[in-house]
């Protein structure tokens, strides 16, 4: 078999929630599949599986991506943060706390992706944010329950009142 025709597993090394991970993945395995099925990190939800709903959002090198539309092999050498990696021990991340305080969660299915999309936004926009900024930044995340209002309020509360700590990004 020619080298370029190989469908063999791909050896990858990455950091997941600050810990080094080595894995052999089938080329067609998505990052969502790797996280959920191989690493047991089922906080990353799969909603649509077609790049539309954002439930599968994780941070790749600090930026939100839809993990149903990234193959695991693309994460080689990079750092991934999932909802499981956000809290510092028992201390919730400010965005998680704000979601709690603003009742921004109903069934919770969209929540991990919503929170990570918000963390990505806050990491890329240091200044104060308007409601429109937040709505546009969360446009790739669908919520079928809340009507978005409380989610937007939660994100605005963090953006405009608190200092957001950087999310652990590499393998320390």
């Amino acid at each position: 078999m020619t080298e370029s025709g190989s469908r063999e597993d791909v050896e990858i090394k990455l950091s997941v929630n600050g810990r080094p991970v080595a894995a052999a993945v089938e080329p067609r395995t998505t990052l969502a599949g790797l996280l959920r099925d191989e690493l047991g990190l089922t906080g990353t939800n799969i909603g649509c599986d077609t790049t539309s709903c954002g439930a599968c959002t994780v941070l790749l090198d600090g930026r939100a991506v839809k993990s149903c539309t990234v193959v695991g092999a693309q994460a080689h050498g990079r750092s991934v943060v999932t909802i499981e990696g956000l809290a510092d021990g028992d201390r919730l991340h400010p965005v998680q706390r704000a979601f709690h305080e603003h009742h921004a969660v109903q069934c919770g299915f969209c929540t991990p992706g919503m929170v990570l999309a918000a963390v990505s936004l806050l990491g890329s926009a240091p200044g104060p944010l308007t409601e429109q900024d937040v709505r546009l930044a969360l446009k790739g995340n669908l919520c079928r329950c809340t009507g978005y209002h409380n989610i937007i309020q939660a994100v605005l509360a963090v953006a405009n009142t608190q200092a957001v700590p950087a999310v652990s990004n590499g393998d320390e």
Partner: peptide, 9 residues
């Protein structure tokens, strides 16, 4: 284009 997640990739 699309949304932030898609623009990041």
């Amino acid at each position: 284009i699309a949304d932030p997640q898609i623009r990041h990739m």
